[in-house]
Design a protein around this nucleic acid. Structure first.
Lengths: 261, 261
DNA sequence: GTAATAGTGTCTTTAAGACACTATGTA
DNA sequence: TACATAGTGTCTTAAAGACACTATTAC
C-alpha cells in the first residue's frame, strides 16, 4: 500500500481507493453441531457427503459464508437448508483454521452449536431425506478435556467423520457440559412443558453421570427459572408429575453464582 | 460445479481439478486482547492506528492471517510483532464477522486473549514505542453480560476504540471471569513466584469484587496446584509471606468440580 | 517494644447428598 | 387393593464466610 499517500486521505477517500484484493484470503465456512438428547445419550445431526472430497463420510451440516452474510445468519441458513430446522438456540463454539484441515484449499470454519428437542430433530430429518442421520455420540475422554468424539450410526458402529468434525463434536460436548449448570440450556432440549424428571434426564445425559434427585429438584426450583403450569403429564401408568415451563425471567441475584472466595 | 462429473473422480483427481476461486471470500484477521492486572484493575494493550481507516483511534493489536498460517500462529505473530511479547498464555475467544464491522471490506476477525504479568507487558511496550498504550479497562456492565468495555488512557479519560474492539474487550473480560475459578489462569498474571496475597489481588481485580481471605487461601492450597518454595518475599516492612509457584500438575480428582446434583 | 501483615483454629452458615417417609395417579 | 413414581422433611456432610487469635518481620 502507498502508505504516505494514504495518510493524507480522509476515511471516505481512503475507502473509495481501497483494493480488497491485496491480501489473499482463506475460504470461510460455518459448520453447525445440532445437538439433541435421545434415550439418555447425546446425539447430533450428520449429513452424508455426496460430493468430493471425502465423499461418503459423514459431516456436520455446513456451508460457505456469503460475502454479505453474518456468521450466525450463515449458520441459521445452513440448519434451515440442510436440516429443515428454524428458530433454534444457536451459539458460536470455536473457529477451526489449521492449514490443511480441508484438502481442497485453506478453509477456516466457524463452528456453531444448535440445541433442539429430539422430536423436532427427528421430524425434520425424516422430512429432508435419508442422507441425514442423527448419530449417537460416544463421549468418553480422559479428564474432560474435550478431545475428538466418535459418532455411532444406525447399527451402533462408528461413522467415518469428515475433516476435523470429530474434534468439533468434542468441543461442542465440552462447551455444553460446562454451560449446563450456570446457564439455562437444558430447557432447549425439551418441549415447552416438561417434568422435573425429564429435565434431570437431560442433565444426566449431557453430563454423562447420574445426579441426585433431591438436590437437583431443590436447585432447579430455587433457581427461579421454572414456572409450574398446574397441568400434569398424561399417558403414564403411575402418579403423573407436574409440568413446568421455563420462565425466561432474569435470575434473581445471580445465575452466575460460582462464588470465588 | 459439474456435479455429475465430479462424482466419478477420486479425491486426488478432484483436488487436482478444484478451483478455490469459485466462492468470493471475506478477509480473515486476528485481533489479540493482551491482558494484565495493574493497580488492582484489568488493563489491556492497545495500539494507536497510524493508517486509515479510523486513523488515530486505538485498536487491539491485530493483523491479517497468511494463507499458510494457523490462526493461533497468526495471533502469536501479532503479539510478537506489535507487542514484542512471546510465549504468552493464549486462548481463542470468539470470532467477529458482522458484515460492516470493518468499513474497508468484509473482514472476519478471530479474537484471541493473551495473559501476561504487568512487568513483562510494560517492559515490552516501552521497548516498542509510544503509539502503544496499556489502557485501564472500565468494566461495569449490568448483570455480567459482557457488553462493550471502555478503555481509559493516561489521563484517565476514555480512549476512542476502533471498529468493534470495545465489544471484543467485553467478551475477553467475561471469559476471563468465568474461567478464573475453575482453570489455572490467575497465575498467568504473576511472575513465577508469588505470594497468596498477590494471587488474591489478581482474582479480585479480575472479578471486580473483594474475596474472603481465609476461604481463598484454603481453596488455593486445597486445589493442589500451588507449591511452596520455602523462600519468602523481600522488601516489605512487615512479616514477609511465603512464596509459592504454580505446579502444573494435573488436578487430583477434579479441577472441573462444578457439582450438579 | 509497636506496626503491619502472614497464617491458624474454630464457629456459623449454606447447599449438596442421603434416605425415610408420604402422596397420588393407574391397573 | 398393589404398584410405581412424584414429592416432602430432616439428618449428615462439605465447603464458604466470619472472626478471633497467634506468628514473624521491620522499625
Amino acid at each position: 500500500m502507498a502508505d504516505k499517500q494514504l495518510r493524507e486521505l480522509s476515511d471516505e477517500e481512503f475507502l473509495a481507493a481501497y483494493d480488497p484484493e491485496v491480501f489473499p484470503r482463506p475460504s470461510l465456512a460455518v459448520d453447525v453441531v445440532v445437538v439433541a438428547v435421545r434415550a439418555g445419550r447425546l446425539c447430533a445431526l450428520l449429513v452424508r457427503r455426496g460430493e468430493q472430497p471425502q465423499r461418503g463420510s459423514w459431516a456436520l451440516p455446513g456451508g460457505f459464508v456469503a460475502m454479505d452474510e453474518g456468521l450466525e445468519a450463515a449458520a441459521r441458513r445452513v440448519v434451515a437448508t440442510k436440516g429443515a430446522l428454524r428458530d433454534l438456540y444457536l451459539e458460536q463454539l470455536y473457529t477451526f483454521g489449521d492449514p490443511g484441515r480441508d484438502p481442497r484449499t485453506r478453509v477456516v470454519s466457524v463452528a456453531y452449536m444448535a440445541l433442539t428437542d429430539l422430536a423436532r430433530l427427528e421430524h425434520a430429518v425424516e422430512a429432508v431425506g435419508d442422507d441425514r442421520w442423527v448419530a449417537d455420540l460416544a463421549v468418553g475422554w480422559k479428564g474432560e478435556h474435550g478431545g475428538p468424539v466418535e459418532a455411532a450410526g444406525p447399527d451402533g458402529t462408528g461413522l467415518r467423520l469428515a475433516f476435523d468434525h470429530a474434534q468439533i463434536l468434542g468441543i461442542a460436548v465440552q462447551r455444553l457440559r460446562g454451560k449446563l449448570d450456570y446457564a439455562p440450556v437444558g430447557f432447549e432440549f425439551l418441549p415447552k412443558q416438561f417434568t422435573l424428571r425429564q429435565l434431570q434426564d437431560i442433565h444426566e445425559a449431557v453430563l454423562g453421570r447420574p445426579l441426585n434427585k433431591d438436590s437437583f429438584r431443590r436447585r432447579m426450583l430455587a433457581g427461579g427459572q421454572l414456572e409450574a403450569t398446574g397441568a400434569r403429564e398424561g399417558d403414564v401408568a403411575y402418579r403423573p408429575a407436574e409440568l413446568y415451563r421455563f420462565a425466561r425471567q432474569a435470575p434473581k441475584g445471580g445465575a452466575i453464582r460460582r462464588s470465588d472466595g
